[in-house]
Design a protein around this nucleic acid. Structure first.
Lengths: 167, 167
DNA sequence: GACAAGAATTTCGATATCGAAACATCTAGA
DNA sequence: TCTAGATGTTTCGATATCGAAATTCTTGTC
């Protein structure tokens, strides 16, 4: 059964037969699926008063384990975000009372971002929805299919090419 | 060999052992890979004077085949974008001379977006880079792996759950 | 054929992100 | 010690996106 990407590939084959667009068979599906999941995630989170990016940040602090504290730079590396956007995201979360900035005793240029009790509560309240949305998209795959998919994506992530970065 | 997501999963297992975060093994990798590819794509396109979203739009018109003309609504359905963002994207591309808005003879509420010769040239100039970036990320997979990956993603895309949409 | 409901596009206001530059601090080497 | 360059964070200006509302036109129904 053809999906939207099959139709796109057929269009390319007709409009530009000389061009090998086969990489799109994988990548376009990856993009489209990612966007669909993110849209649905945003919809679910709107009811919660949290955005997905804010959830990501709280989750990154939480899973770091007590005392749930990381520097902005560590957060920038964990989440794919510019340092400027990180500053603003932290501003919002601090204004909401979900994180606190404290002085960094090791480096006075820096700062430590700490998850507050309210931040932890907000995170745990949204975590169920987060996993639910993912699960609903994964539903058509059995355990073996999920493992296969995770393995293939991991192979691509581990390869240093592409952008040469360690993201 | 563990990747970043393996580390995240291990952190979750330690910080919240009661929560089943296994959907993240697939989804977090999908998100991260998508973001990495998009960042690299943006970097390559910057040198070209085109943005990825603008490329997507031109490509959608081009592969529709002559006369390379679609309505904004058709473009909104083909690309995952709000109608407001589509209006602005079309404004930019029209200002750059890459598309033209013409009256729609079938529906006077609507409009037809036509790819210009300059738009086609810009598209074809960027297409090689677009495919190169994808190929560089797919490099670690052989033909069978790519087919497997495309198939698994297609299975998820075809499933009507998740957001119930036909995106 | 008039009118209500729906659809296509645009406008509007808000905001999250980006790259570049500014600023403060740290580190390594002479 | 002093200095030059690197690093962590924030500020700045620009802009792409969003949801909601406004506008214009079409369609189906009585």
């Amino acid at each position: 059964m053809p999906d939207q990407v099959d139709k796109v590939l057929a269009q390319w084959a007709a409009a530009a037969p000389a061009v090998d667009v086969s990489p799109m068979a994988v990548m376009s599906r990856l993009f489209r699926l990612g966007k669909r999941v993110e849209k649905e995630m945003a919809r679910r989170f709107r009811d919660h008063g949290l955005q997905e990016g804010e959830f990501d940040l709280l989750a990154t602090l939480y899973r770091a384990g007590p005392p749930c504290a990381l520097t902005p730079q560590q957060l920038v590396q964990a989440i794919l975000l510019s340092s400027a956007a990180m500053t603003h995201r932290l501003d919002r979360l601090e204004a909401a009372g979900f994180v606190r900035r404290e002085a960094n005793p090791d480096d006075r240029r820096s700062v430590v971002v700490v998850l507050t009790a309210a931040g932890q509560a907000a995170l745990l309240g949204a975590l169920g929805d987060y996993l639910d949305v993912m699960e609903s998209f994964l539903a058509p795959l059995d355990t073996a299919g999920r493992a296969q998919l995770a393995g293939l994506l991991k192979t691509m992530l581990l390869h240093p090419d592409g952008d040469g970065g360690v993201l």
